[in-house]
Amino acid sequence: MEELYPATPVRADGLLEVGDGHRLYCQEAGNPDGKPVVVLHGGPGSGISAAARQHFDPAVYRIVLFDQRGAGRSTPSAGDPASDLATNTLWHLVSDLELLRERLRIQRWQCFGGSWGSTLALAYAQAHPDRVTELVLRGVFTVRRCELDWLYRGGAAHLFPAEWDAFVAPLDERQRVDPIEGYAELLHSPDRAVAERAAIAWSTWEGATVALLPQPAFVDQYSKPSFALPFARLAVHYFRNGAWLEEGQLIRDAGRLAGIPGVLVQGRYDAVCPPITAYQLHHAWPGSVLRLVEGAGHAVGDPGILAALREATDGFR
């Protein structure tokens, strides 16, 4: 797609020890002496994608990507039922980012993240504002209860009734009172088949709602057990704990971002992370710009999203 830069090869990669038995898979691409940017993937649990390197001019940017704890090629995988998630929290990920920055001898960098990646970018930037040059965020998500209620407790069911029925199908009547807690039970079942069926149902729900128009490729990707198990286990782990944030914290503390330029790219018809969150963050964050993209949903490939992201990264280069 013309909105993306040509495929950018990985220039260096490896594993970073971050403690607690975790090793993060990391990549670098682009200009080793260029403007640093770190890409924060969604989920939590979706992992690095090769296309994420293509949002940046490789002649100008030093592009850093990594799989967050439990995701992608990082170890141990959250898809392993024996994996202990106690040391996998938002604040562990914020600390991991600082460790990675120091390891790469980067003084300050741009943070680029979509969906859950926007959550991590905001938490990191509010904790370490002196280390962030700019923020580029897509499909803004701050893990407030109203946002979780919308997607996982029946709000979006009004738009996707058949898909909602499939989402709650693995849950019994008691578990349907709070599907997040109900899925927590199923995903930690000692019966691997039960956990796998639950993971696929959880993950497929997001795959079915992510794009403005139906995209079978998303459903196919999200329904693969190798993707669904870490994706679902991490998402439920984070969301049932409110991502270890105080309610509304990331918008409440947006004043800490004063002086950091930011662009919020938001689909008008985003059914996963509705525009109200980006709108409220924009009004709480001095210096931010809201790009509301008409005719787009949550998916990065929806019409207009890629162009808005490239405009942002080119503008900051």
Rank of each mutant, 00 (worst) to 15 (best):
T8R: 07
G19D: 04
G21H: 11
C26P: 05
Q27F: 08
P32V: 10
K35E: 09
V37L: 02
G47Y: 12
I48A: 02
Q54D: 10
A59G: 15
V60Y: 08
Y61V: 09
R62E: 10
I63S: 08
V64Y: 07
L65H: 12
P76C: 03
G79E: 01
A82D: 15
D84F: 02
H92F: 02
I106F: 07
Q107F: 05
G114T: 04
G117C: 13
S118M: 02
Q126K: 13
Q126L: 06
V136L: 05
L148P: 05
W150D: 08
R153A: 14
L159P: 04
P161K: 10
L171E: 09
E173H: 13
D178A: 09
P179R: 04
E181D: 15
Y183A: 11
A193V: 06
R197N: 02
W202E: 03
E206R: 14
D220Y: 14
P230M: 10
R233T: 13
R233C: 05
L234K: 06
A235W: 01
V236S: 02
H237L: 14
I251K: 08
D253R: 14
A254V: 04
L257P: 01
V265I: 13
R268I: 06
Y269P: 01
D270V: 10
D270I: 03
P275L: 03
P275R: 02
I276P: 05
A278R: 11
Y279R: 14
H282G: 10
S288N: 11
G295F: 01
A296I: 04
A296L: 00
T313G: 13
